[in-house]
Simulated scan of single mutants.
Amino acid sequence: MEENSLNVYGEQLRSCSVNPLTGFFRDGCCNTSFEDTGIHTVCIQATEEFLHYSKAVGNDLSTPVPQYNFPGLKPGDHWCLCAGRWVEAYQAGAAPKVYLEATHEETLAIIPLNLLEKFKA
């Protein structure tokens, strides 16, 4: 984890998940950089509703993909989600809960803090 990475509260970014291992850099944190064009910065708790929604819009997060060492998500798992995908799920009524202490501050460029707080896990 980048020691200088901050969460949406301006505090040190906490780990999102190591089982399954998440993050753009697969470091367990929702760190980001210029290479992360998807902005994988929102630490969520997956729900059945969200996983069905995500699969229906072409981002199947529940099916294992062994060649990429991806076990597939199940309800209750934590995951670094793309900020734009979270907004889409919110607009569809399927937004998952968010762990704000593990959500990167860059998320605030896309999602206002007051909206994220309504989904605080």
Rank of each mutant, 00 (worst) to 15 (best):
33 S>W: 08
19 N>I: 00
12 Q>D: 13
39 I>S: 02
27 D>T: 10
84 G>A: 09
42 V>M: 03
40 H>F: 09
80 C>E: 00
88 E>T: 02
56 A>R: 02
63 T>P: 09
88 E>I: 04
69 N>G: 11
53 Y>P: 01
34 F>Y: 14
18 V>T: 14
69 N>Q: 12
59 N>D: 08
96 P>Q: 14
77 D>V: 11
71 P>E: 12
118 K>L: 07
113 L>P: 00
59 N>F: 14
8 V>Q: 00
66 P>L: 14
95 A>R: 07
98 V>G: 06
29 C>F: 15
35 E>F: 13
99 Y>V: 12
48 E>V: 12
94 A>R: 15
4 N>Q: 11
62 S>Y: 04
66 P>N: 14
17 S>V: 03
32 T>L: 06
79 W>D: 02
33 S>C: 12
10 G>A: 02
114 N>T: 11
75 P>E: 13
80 C>I: 02
84 G>F: 09
7 N>T: 07
43 C>D: 05
82 C>M: 02
78 H>R: 15
94 A>V: 11
40 H>G: 00
43 C>I: 07
110 I>T: 05
89 A>V: 01
83 A>P: 04
72 G>F: 11
50 F>L: 06
42 V>A: 01
92 A>C: 10
21 L>M: 15
2 E>V: 05
10 G>R: 03
79 W>V: 02
43 C>H: 05
36 D>N: 05
46 A>G: 13
71 P>Y: 14
3 E>I: 03
76 G>L: 05
84 G>D: 07
40 H>K: 00
74 K>A: 13
38 G>L: 13
41 T>R: 01
82 C>I: 02
92 A>T: 10
67 Q>L: 12
116 L>I: 08
51 L>H: 06
53 Y>L: 06
55 K>W: 10
70 F>S: 01
98 V>W: 04
58 G>D: 02
50 F>A: 04
19 N>K: 07
54 S>A: 12
6 L>W: 08
7 N>P: 07
44 I>R: 04
5 S>R: 04
53 Y>C: 03
121 A>Y: 14
74 K>Y: 09
60 D>G: 08
58 G>C: 00
110 I>K: 03
100 L>H: 13
49 E>M: 10
13 L>H: 06
86 W>S: 01
41 T>I: 03
